[in-house]
Design a protein around this nucleic acid. Sequence first.
DNA 1: CCAGCCTATCTTGCATACAAGAACGTTGAC
DNA 2: GTCAACGTTCTTGTATGCAAGATAGGCTGG
Lengths: 220, 220
Amino acid sequence: MDKDRNRSDIVADALEKLIFDGTFADGARLDEAQLAERFGVSRTPVREAFQRLAISGLVAQIPRRGVFVRQPGPVDLLEMFEVMAELEAVCVRLAATRISDAALDRLDEINAACNAAVGARDADRYFDENEAFHRALYRHSGNAFLEAECLRLHRRLRPFRRRQLHLRGRMAQSMAEHEAVVAALRDGDGARGAAAMRAHIAVQGEKFHHLMASLRTAAE
Amino acid sequence: MDKDRNRSDIVADALEKLIFDGTFADGARLDEAQLAERFGVSRTPVREAFQRLAISGLVAQIPRRGVFVRQPGPVDLLEMFEVMAELEAVCVRLAATRISDAALDRLDEINAACNAAVGARDADRYFDENEAFHRALYRHSGNAFLEAECLRLHRRLRPFRRRQLHLRGRMAQSMAEHEAVVAALRDGDGARGAAAMRAHIAVQGEKFHHLMASLRTAAE
DNA sequence: CCAGCCTATCTTGCATACAAGAACGTTGAC
DNA sequence: GTCAACGTTCTTGTATGCAAGATAGGCTGG
């Protein structure tokens, strides 16, 4: 089933990774021929990959000039996190009247796994379990389109979210916020759950400093 | 400045129109060679256009099989309108504390133009002015990323929104809702404005019937 | 010595050629 | 008569070739 993927898909994924991990700095020009050779394919799949990255906003395509990496700046990031917070808040509000008791129990299980990761001080494992929690909430919004949009933005913000976790005490705080969300859901209190979720995602306080710092290290 | 656009852009736009206006029914296969000939270009720009449409969700691309038109069904539409309502509600809530008095006056002007269109029973003009109102709200959310996301979804829902207007009395009701939103913004009451906006977009009551009816006519 | 223009070269955008996989029809066997 | 297997043909995916625009460097004129 992995053989179903075209070369353009593979190139697009590879390029995305290279942009995310900072191999290509902001403003760098991506050379078609060079990348084609690097990936061992012709220019065609590379061009198709460019198109997709351009739509995702990871690169800017200037006609007849080439494509340029477009790393998000501080303002872009704050805006994206704000939208993420609002979207996730909507998920919670909608889920409050749509989620089943069984699903709530499942959320508790995921949170228990998160908690175990916190206890083990395993940031990577916490990161994974945290993602499962958020994905579950998207799912329980009962709106597949909303779920897809959330997944898209979540994926886009992934590399920036990762760094936040290493802030001391952040994992424990994050856990508490998760539990507040689930508690509100159990009470069927959509407004309270939404507020808790918004606070969970929002870039505020110390998180702001960390986000800015992460940008600086990425640039160097 | 229109010469800057590549052929793939032109093909993508043309295809989008053809899909929106129902020339290609749901599930229809889009033939590369045929469309290339139709537009007088080679297969390459057609393929690039397909990529973009696939990401927008207008067509589904099945590897080695071709691309198929994917018209949204009733459930898809309800979900998309729900997300649109929530996104616009967020715009209003954020705008409540960010919009300037001058911008509020400008919104009143747009609404006055809307009102004139209602008086003239000019649905097309009302449609245009209505779009200006919504675009202005996206702008005043003070979040460029949110604005872009709203524009994207708004554009996607455009053909379905258009039909709703011809419902008797809908224009007048829509106007009243616009004014409720602006009034809440003047009071700086984000929550009230958000609720008003959500109600304005939400598919409920008679609008539901109309949306379903429009789907039936589009399918025939 | 600097500015502007012209040309050489490189890059993109598009067209076309080619290969591999999928659909379809035919033929043969049971 | 029906089903299956094979081969043909059509379509997609990829590579390559070609033309037009863009950049850079040198040359000429002021």
